[in-house]
Design a protein around this nucleic acid. Structure first.
Length: 576
DNA sequence: GCCGTTTTCGGCCCGACTGTTTTCAGTCG
């Protein structure tokens, strides 16, 4: 083991992206820059620790990582830094990378501003514009100054590109808008495309692709929707708008005979499309959003459906959730993916006994209304400290209440559980005798994130009564990164001990994420999909968990709570 | 910088828009 802490895959990917940015500013050929970005993506998508793979001499197994990058990664793992990156950082001002994020300003022109005017960041750029020194540069003009100044004003202090929005908020707008457009008399097909259709964790904007008898009427209806705050661009082919919520929305109205091409193109991902096009070129086909050009015939073919687009390329129709260039183009047959209706139970939720908003009975009734066969009530344990900590005595009362509700309600099985806090030493809050009275035990890290979460989670897996690790990495989108968990080690411990790992359905968590859930499944670990609901309406949060599971290529059999409770209880490690 | 059912060298997806241009480079998605 190395003495220093290994950098995470996300941290390594960030360094390679930075290398790409800096080489680009130095004028490197685009394909060299692209090579760094491709490698960064491959490392982000890698299920295992790339630092560990580097040490084992296996890092070139990743697509896009060759000899040169292996050397750089080896240096990083052994010394904690990449010499080439350190040199570049000393040569290229950090502010130069920052101004390339301004719309309309890329690496080439940023470099020119630096070399000719000494511009090294946003402040220097503003000064140069105000002194009208930019307009005299070749390739720049008065219009450039105007637009760059506007971009600087719009960016304010944070020149940081557009913010991403978590999917639940974006879809609330996107699904409502699609429903409105579908209800319009002149609309024919209306589909959400982009990363929202792929059910990504978060999205930058929304893309809607439509066909209509009267395109202008549909575009007018779009512009007039209550959900739209302003229209920034509008024409016969579509419109670009900002929703009341602040998210950007692009509507494209297209001819019916190329709806399939457009929908496929705008669903992405970019990496998926690039991979498709590269493979197509080898077969003499050129794919664009408008059609597929066949070298042999010189004809461009348009398709009304995505199924036809994929079929023309010799591929099965690939579900949007899989379109990330993570091996889906090698599929001859698409695996059956889990669906919402496959879930039979929900094994993680809270009531007023801890920090929930509803009673045991209300939660059970709401779950029954959603069609679930069983639920586990899993309030926080004694040391969680939300003010409503469930003491051992209180837990005994709660168990009795759950049993009473279970007896009383027909059509749903209500299980007594707990979300037990994993202490800094890996111990649990309740003694084993009390824990043994429970039907279901979720163990989670809620405190002291810097105190060796890996060792604590491994210890929890080794506890004979723990069924599942809740939200294993602790990430919260828009709020905080995952704590420093060695996911490889957690998966190995779960496999060894027969512990399940959770895909938490809270839209801010979705934890495990798609990459790690896929790694867990591939290792042979069973997953659960839970709502972590704190009120009846949040039981529907399992949809985000199902989305993550689909993005992880999971089928129903890979998820423990697609089974009837009587079958699942026999899979608990305590029952075996 | 990566990679190989035409290649260990010479390629590496596709098209639109913009502003500064007499035919295009840079930027973006």
């Amino acid at each position: 083991m190395a003495a220093a802490k290994d950098p995470s895959n996300a941290a390594i990917a960030e360094l390679l992206d930075e290398l790409g940015d800096l080489y680009e500013l130095e004028g490197a050929v685009v394909h060299r820059v692209l090579a760094y970005r491709n490698a960064a993506k491959a490392i982000r998508d890698a299920p295992r620790s790339v630092a560990a793979m580097t040490r084992e001499g296996r890092v070139t197994e990743l697509p896009g990582v060759g000899k040169t990058l292996e050397e750089k990664l080896t240096a990083l793992v052994e010394t904690g830094e990449i010499p080439a990156l350190e040199k570049l950082r000393s040569r290229v001002p950090a502010g130069l990378v920052v101004i390339t994020r301004l719309p309309g300003l890329g690496p080439k022109r940023a470099r020119k501003l630096h070399d000719a005017l000494g511009v090294d960041g946003p402040q220097a750029l503003r000064a140069a514009i105000e002194q009208h020194r930019v307009r005299d540069l070749a390739g720049f003009g008065a219009k450039s100054e105007e637009r760059l100044l506007a971009a600087l004003d719009a960016a304010g202090d944070a020149v940081d590109g557009p913010k991403r929005e978590i999917l639940s908020r974006a879809l609330a707008v996107g699904e409502a808008l699609v429903a409105e457009l579908r209800a319009h008399p002149s609309s024919d097909r209306v589909e959400l495309a982009g990363s929202a259709r792929r059910w990504a964790d978060s999205v930058k904007d929304l893309d809607i692709i439509a066909t209509a008898d009267d395109p202008q009427a549909l575009i007018d209806a779009f512009a007039a929707s209550d959900l739209i705050a302003e229209i920034s661009r509008s024409g016969v082919a579509g419109a670009h708008a900002i929703a009341q919520s602040g998210i950007a929305i692009d509507l494209r109205v297209v001819a019916p005979d190329q709806f399939g091409n457009l929908l496929q193109h705008f669903t992405g991902s970019k990496a998926h499309n690039v991979a498709i096009r590269e493979a197509a070129v080898r077969r003499g086909l050129h794919v664009s959003e408008y059609g597929i050009l066949d070298d042999e015939t010189g004809q461009s073919e348009r398709f009304a459906t995505e199924e036809e687009v994929y079929a023309r390329l010799g591929l099965p129709w690939i579900p949007p959730e899989l379109r990330e260039d993570r091996g889906e183009l090698q599929l001859t047959e698409v695996p059956p993916l889990i669906e919402q209706a496959d879930l039979r139970g929900d094994l993680h939720m809270h009531t007023t006994a801890s920090d929930g908003r509803a009673s045991v009975r209300e939660m059970a009734q709401a779950a029954r209304a959603l069609g679930l066969d069983y639920v586990a009530i899993t309030d926080h344990s004694a040391s969680h400290g939300f003010g409503d900590a469930v003491s051992p005595d209180r837990l005994r009362e709660l168990i009795a209440e759950v049993r009473a509700v279970d007896d009383e309600l027909d059509g749903i099985t209500v299980l007594a559980g707990s979300e037990v806090n994993i202490g800094v030493d890996g111990s649990l809050d309740y003694d084993d005798e009390l824990l043994a009275e429970l039907d279901w035990i979720v163990a989670s890290v809620h405190t002291a994130f810097t105190s060796d979460p890996t060792a604590r989670i491994v210890a929890a897996c080794e506890h004979p009564l723990v069924d599942v690790i809740g939200h294993p990495t602790g990430r919260k989108l828009e709020e905080r990164f995952a704590y420093d968990l060695d996911v490889d080690a957690a998966i190995a411990a779960a496999l060894r001990t027969g512990t399940f790992l959770e895909i938490n359905g809270s839209p801010r968590r979705r934890d495990l994420d798609d990459v790690h859930a896929r790694a867990a499944r591939d290792a042979g670990v069973l997953l659960t999909i839970d709502s972590d609901a704190h009120g009846p309406e949040a039981l529907a949060n399992t949809r985000w968990g199902v989305a993550t599971a689909r993005r992880a290529w999971l089928s129903a059999a890979d998820v423990a709570n697609t089974r009837p409770w009587e079958e699942l209880r026999k899979l608990r490690k305590g029952a075996r």
